[in-house]
Amino acid sequence: MTNEQQKLLKKLQICDFVLTEATLYLDTHPNNTMALEYFNKHNEMRKEISREYTEKYGPLTRFDNNSDRSWQWTKNPWPWENMEDCNNVEL
């Protein structure tokens, strides 16, 4: 994973975590307009970051497939592994 990809992923993780926290708060405070505004603002940010990420580095969900030649979804690496892990198993 390149430095640039790692940076963009970090941005996505930060934005997504903000949304996770805001979701939990809104679940029990559904009419808090400040929290709603906060959620909506970051949701727009997340959409933009996720669009850029999937365009450059492939799908985040199976619905993000962006190739009509091959299925990108299963491509290595998977989130729990480092790039090197994928290369040392071939015989």
């Binding site: 199976r62 299963t74 290595n76 998977w78 198993v89």
Partner: peptide, 16 residues
């Protein structure tokens, strides 16, 4: 099981 799957197709199928 998917963490012990060595090939991308198998990681995919176990996840999905």
């Amino acid at each position: 099981q998917r963490y012990a799957a060595p090939y991308s197709e198998v990681k995919g199928i176990l996840t999905d």
